[in-house]
């Protein structure tokens, strides 16, 4: 199988001023089995009279059990898009659907992991992981079992009673992932989760995330600006460009889920990586 670089969402740039009103175009047909469907999402920021078009008619979907990366240079609006999917920000127009339901606000069904500093500093590792379960009113026994299970999966058991400030950056992100996974979300949204880590820890956590996905089959949408990370982890990659932020390419990665670090020497991997890097400039 050869890598396919197909251009989708071909939008003419002169559409800047002609915002399509809601309902002018029906939602894009839901691709078969898609967990997440984003339909012509636009985001416009108005600040002191100046108008910034952060996102322009973004369409994408993520299938059940798929690992999809949003790849783009900083400032292309990919984090804004993830916030909209997470329900933390409102789209100016367009819609986000999870299992067909319209997203109007944040919820535990879309677990999110941020770049850093998002752990509750007063809560221990176990209490952080337990947070969402407590809010969802799980029974005490179920909560204890679930927290214990995640501590095991994340190799965090010996740090269960440590405070976040006693942990290294890599461990903190492991806790953040465990906390987001705890309430069994339909979808895991990762916003440059390894962006603040050193190269070695980053590679380690990439392998870790890959293993987690292989074992649990969670549906994952991850934002990153690291080309190699995206090619290494994803089934598909959406490439975004800035000003206005839109999707310029959709790339299917020719490796199945059961991949390992070995693919990093595969000529197809290297070819994809180089072409994507060139695209990002």
């Amino acid at each position: 199988m050869t890598p396919t670089l197909s251009t989708t969402a071909t939008l003419s740039t002169d559409r800047r001023d002609s915002h399509r009103p809601d309902g002018d175009r029906p939602d894009a047909p839901r691709p078969d089995g898609a967990k997440l469907v984003v339909s012509s999402v636009t985001k416009v920021f108005r600040r002191r009279g100046s108008i910034t078009e952060a996102l322009q008619f973004v369409d994408l979907h993520v299938d059940e059990g798929e690992f999809v990366c949003l790849l783009g240079a900083s400032g292309c609006g990919k984090s804004t898009l993830l916030s909209i999917i997470g329900g933390l920000e409102e789209a100016t127009s367009g819609s986000v659907r999870v299992d067909g339901d319209l997203v109007v606000g944040p919820g535990a069904d879309r677990g999110m992991v941020f770049q850093g500093y998002s752990l509750f500093p007063w809560a221990t590792v176990a209490q952080n992981i337990d947070w969402g379960l407590q809010v969802a009113r799980w029974s005490k026994d179920r909560r204890r079992d679930r927290v214990d299970e995640l501590l095991g999966i994340m190799s965090l058991r010996e740090f269960a009673n440590a405070l976040p400030r006693e942990l290294s950056g890599g461990m903190r992100q492991r806790v953040a992932i465990a906390r987001a996974l705890a309430p069994e979300p339909d979808l895991l949204l990762l916003d440059e989760p390894f962006g603040a880590l050193d190269a070695q820890t980053r590679r380690h956590l990439q392998d870790f995330l890959l293993g987690l996905w292989q074992r649990t089959g969670t549906t994952i949408l991850m934002v990153t600006h690291d080309v190699e990370e995206a090619v290494y982890l994803a089934n598909r990659i959406y490439v975004m460009s800035a000003r206005p932020g839109r999707i310029t390419q959709e790339v299917t990665i020719p490796f199945d889920r059961n991949r390992g670090a070995g693919i990093k020497r595969d000529p197809r991997f290297l070819d994809l990586r180089d072409r994507l890097a060139e695209l990002l400039g």
Partner: peptide, 14 residues
Amino acid sequence: VPRELLHASYTLGG
């Protein structure tokens, strides 16, 4: 209070 903590709370169902 860091915005990240509020977002973490919301996306955990708070």
